[in-house]
Design a protein around this nucleic acid. Sequence first.
DNA 1: AAGGTGACGCCTA
DNA 2: GTAGGCGCCACCT
Length: 124
Amino acid sequence: MVLDSAEFHSAVYSVVRQIPVQKVTTYGHIAKLVGMPNHSRHVGQALKYLSPDTNPPVPWQRVVSSTGAISSRGPGTDGAQRQREALEAEGVEVRIGRTGELLVDLKEDGWFPSPSEIQIENEG
DNA sequence: AAGGTGACGCCTA
DNA sequence: GTAGGCGCCACCT
């Protein structure tokens, strides 16, 4: 498996598509599920390179960092806000941290299946 | 070719 | 509970 391959991307997408509504998981856990536990950053890359018209859709809003924080994507961008709105529209509670960070409760809404509980397109 | 960056995560003070 | 440092590796300059 090569990191920047279509294979890697489709593996990531197939996992993300299996996140249930009103649940969230982390970049790191997805990395583990696709068999590359030290490549959480590349999970973010794969989502970043998603096109809006990807079909079937990939619920990228259900992926957050290991602390439960929604990644800001840098000061001039609205990605974090759009992710918050998408999550709240699904019924997921999003809190605001002291420094204005958007936080979800991983204890309550986290979804961390073992690899055997999911299907990975490339391997199945 | 070389160095910096990033939709991250873990370990240590 | 918070902050800072380091590891990670494809991509961009």
